[in-house]
Amino acid sequence: MCERPAYKKAIAKKVTSVACLFAGAKPAQKDDNTNAPTQRNMSLEKGVFVYHLQKDHTNLTDNTKAVLEKAFN
């Protein structure tokens, strides 16, 4: 995301730290699409990007980008 000037500024301003946690992941739901469980376990709150890791999460790069874009807009 830092390749795009607008996002680079937003990241520098809004993301102060990153936390990757190996516990507390929310499980997939029956009607989830492929990306929903991964995105549901990512958040940006008070400057901290938090990711609750789970072994079957998919497409981390694109899902992280989607979560941050949503938080920035």
Rank of each mutant, 00 (worst) to 15 (best):
E45I: 06
P5F: 07
Y51F: 10
V15A: 00
A36G: 03
G47N: 06
A36C: 11
K30W: 14
F72S: 05
R4Y: 07
Q54S: 08
P27N: 12
K9R: 15
D56K: 10
A10F: 03
L44F: 05
C20M: 05
K14P: 04
K55R: 15
K14T: 01
K14M: 12
G47R: 03
N33D: 13
D32P: 12
T38I: 10
L44Y: 01
A66G: 01
C2M: 12
A19F: 02
E69I: 02
Y51I: 02
F22R: 12
E69Y: 05
K30I: 10
K70T: 01
N63Q: 11
A19H: 13
E69D: 10
L68P: 00
D56N: 08
H57N: 14
T16K: 15
G24H: 12
K13N: 13
E69Q: 10
E69G: 07
A71V: 09
N59D: 13
D32L: 05
P5C: 01
V48R: 09
K65G: 06
V18Q: 10
K65I: 15
K14I: 04
R40T: 05
K70Q: 02
F72L: 02
A12C: 14
Q54E: 11
H57W: 15
F22G: 13
A23M: 02
L44G: 04
D32V: 01
K55D: 13
F22L: 02
A19Y: 00
T16M: 04
P37V: 05
A23N: 11
E69H: 09
A12Y: 09
E45Y: 04
M1P: 13
A6R: 12
R40E: 04
L53C: 14
D56M: 08
T38Y: 10
V67D: 07
I11Q: 09
